[in-house]
Amino acid sequence: MDWPLLIEFVRQRDPAFLVQLKGVPDAAIAALAADRGAVLPASYVEFLRRMGSHSNGWAPFGATCEHHFAAIVERLDEHDEDAPPSDRFFPVAIETDESLVALYDHYLDLQRVEGDDAPLVMLEAGVPYQVQTPVETHETFNERVTHGLFHRFQLRHCAERDVVALGGTRRAGEGRAGLQQVLVLLQRAGFEPALPPLGRVACLRAGSLSVLARVNEDYELLTLLLGGDNRLALKALADQLLAGLPGARRPAGPREG
């Protein structure tokens, strides 16, 4: 993942945000990884280096999930024999909302690292690792960070928003196929990538209009979050997507906000 590009994307939209970020020293990251026998993907290491101690309120795993380095170290220092082996599953976010029926923490699956990235899975806290099956999130660390940054620093600042969905029949590969259809349609309409596209995430812009496309492979569902400052232009974009993508629809219920 191109971290300098991501940081520049944020800088152009909210330079004050970057001032408050605080990273973790390389030596501390290397020492923890070595102590646990974990080979961490380069993108996660860079995330820790840039904002592992303080991310200025940005919570890529959700408001109740603690992702800072100190919390990760504390969890690993518990030395719980029922915890997952950290050289296979490395914790990156700890659920803190104790009102939940079950607390699921996020882990990197280090046996499936590809390049600088790794898939995210969830395991239930307090339940022996040996009797659990990791819950697939169907996203990688890079995908989570990319769509989180685009939503936080682009879509959230749009005055108008809408949602279009495609697929959801659980046919294998339907979500990614839909994403490719969307990319072709949007590129013909003048949209360009605002951030580098990933396997299940694409962030695009054309003028004041923005699109965040995400594939949920649990349901083979493609969700398009649309944003803009002009209601008529946004409606025209949504209508174009609904007309150009067979089976596309506006989901029932409240729109993304």
Rank of each mutant, 00 (worst) to 15 (best):
E95N: 14
G253A: 10
Q12A: 15
R11V: 11
R49W: 09
Q240D: 14
V145R: 01
D105C: 10
A42W: 09
D239A: 15
G148E: 03
R156N: 15
V201F: 04
F69S: 04
E124F: 02
R112M: 07
E217Y: 05
A38T: 09
G257V: 14
T96F: 01
K235S: 12
G253P: 03
A206F: 00
G227R: 01
E136M: 12
R152Y: 01
D77H: 12
A102G: 02
A16I: 00
G57H: 01
L76W: 10
D35W: 07
R188H: 11
P196L: 04
L21R: 11
R250S: 12
C158V: 09
K22Q: 13
E124Q: 14
R200T: 15
G115T: 05
T146F: 02
H54I: 00
R214N: 08
V145S: 02
S210C: 14
H157F: 12
G168K: 06
E78I: 00
L149M: 15
R161L: 06
L103K: 12
H67Y: 07
L232H: 12
T96Y: 02
G190V: 11
A63F: 08
D80E: 07
H147N: 07
R36M: 06
L186T: 03
D218S: 13
N56S: 14
R152Q: 15
F153P: 01
R13S: 06
A236P: 00
R13P: 00
L183V: 06
R170F: 12
G168F: 05
R36N: 13
A252F: 08
V101I: 13
L186M: 12
L48D: 07
V121M: 10
G244P: 01
N216Y: 10
R75Q: 14
R13M: 05
Y107Q: 04
E46Q: 15
W3I: 14
C203R: 07
A177D: 11
G207T: 08
V164W: 02
G190T: 11
Q154N: 00
L123R: 10
